[in-house]
């Protein structure tokens, strides 16, 4: 692993002037964080907590009032630091008159790509985000999920080592949301560093290995996800096909123990999202089978 952090934010402070007041609004207050290459870092917090401001400072779209931001050792205010960054803003819109393919070509050219390399990358990205069928369609006619996916493709077009995602699944249906999360996992497997901002906690828990919690512009908790969410003095045991007698014996063993206390026992539950996705999959499979039968009869 490289020694240079993918992201280094040192005591970042960002204040905005407040109209009709002498005092300034402090959106980010002494935020420091380090993300090493290959990590998936989730910055979570409520709306207005300073997540997007932190991201914008990292992208050089805002100038820090105090502190500094570095991307792979380069100051984020310098244009060349953006060579390593791919960014997907919240609810992105692109030039409506361009097709998906033209949009990617435009962004690839902005990154200095030309010729065969550009064509190959555009094809690769369209395939990766499953938009080959819609490549010639105007972006103005894309659904929310498709916009998000083309947004992700433009962010990745120049193969950046760091990808910054601001609420990547905002307003996207559960199936689209799952696809985006799968893409993030793919990126993680490829060693791309991901910096993700979201207030959808379940989503962050699924993909991130490091988390920072931000409230009123301050990082209140940060660290590896497993360490943060583990309840140190409790142990979870999952047993399959255990009968009432087995369970009663386990309870008895715990009751006999000197220090351990029995807290609860029950059936683990799936998430509503998983239930929805399973049902959607089944429904699709049924429709396809019915179509096939219809086709055979014809």
């Amino acid at each position: 692993m490289e020694d240079i952090p993918a992201v280094q934010i040192n005591h970042l402070v960002k204040e905005f002037p407040s109209p009709f007041r002498k005092t300034k609004i402090r959106a980010v207050d002494d935020v420091s964080l380090t993300i090493m290459p290959g990590e998936v870092y989730g910055l979570i917090g409520p709306n207005g907590s300073g997540k997007s401001t932190t991201m914008k400072a990292l992208l050089g779209l805002l100038r820090p009032t105090a502190g500094s931001c570095y991307v792979f050792g380069k100051n984020s205010l310098k244009t060349d630091s953006r060579q390593e960054i791919g960014f997907l803003p919240e609810n992105p819109y692109f030039y409506k008159h361009l097709s998906g393919e033209e949009t990617l070509r435009f962004y690839a050219k902005l990154c200095g790509m030309r010729g065969k390399a550009l064509n190959n990358h555009v094809d690769k990205m369209l395939e990766m985000v499953s938009l080959q069928d819609a490549r010639k369609r105007r972006v103005g006619g894309y659904s929310k999920g498709m916009l998000q996916r083309i947004g992700l493709a433009q962010a990745l077009i120049h193969e950046p080592r760091l990808i910054i995602l601001d609420e990547p699944t905002a307003g996207v249906d559960p199936v689209g949301s799952r696809e985006i999360r799968d893409l993030i996992v793919q990126l993680k497997d490829k060693g791309v560093t991901v910096f993700l901002c979201s207030h959808l906690l379940e989503q962050v828990q699924e993909v991130c290995d490091h988390v920072g919690i931000i409230f009123n512009g301050k990082i209140v908790k940060a660290g590896p996800l497993e360490d943060l969410i583990a309840i140190e003095d409790q142990t979870e045991i999952l047993i399959k096909d255990a009968g009432p007698r087995t369970l009663a014996r386990i309870k008895a063993v715990i009751a006999d123990s000197e220090n351990a206390d029995f807290i609860s026992m029950g059936k683990p539950r799936t998430t509503l999202e998983r239930l929805f996705l399973d049902e959607a999959k089944k429904s699709n499979a049924t429709t396809m089978t019915a179509d096939q039968k219809g086709g055979d009869r014809a």
Partner: peptide, 14 residues
């Protein structure tokens, strides 16, 4: 307004 500016300026574009 469309946030296209963010996606453009977050590329290495002076």
């Amino acid at each position: 307004e469309d946030r296209t500016l963010y996606t453009i300026l977050s590329k290495p574009v002076p």
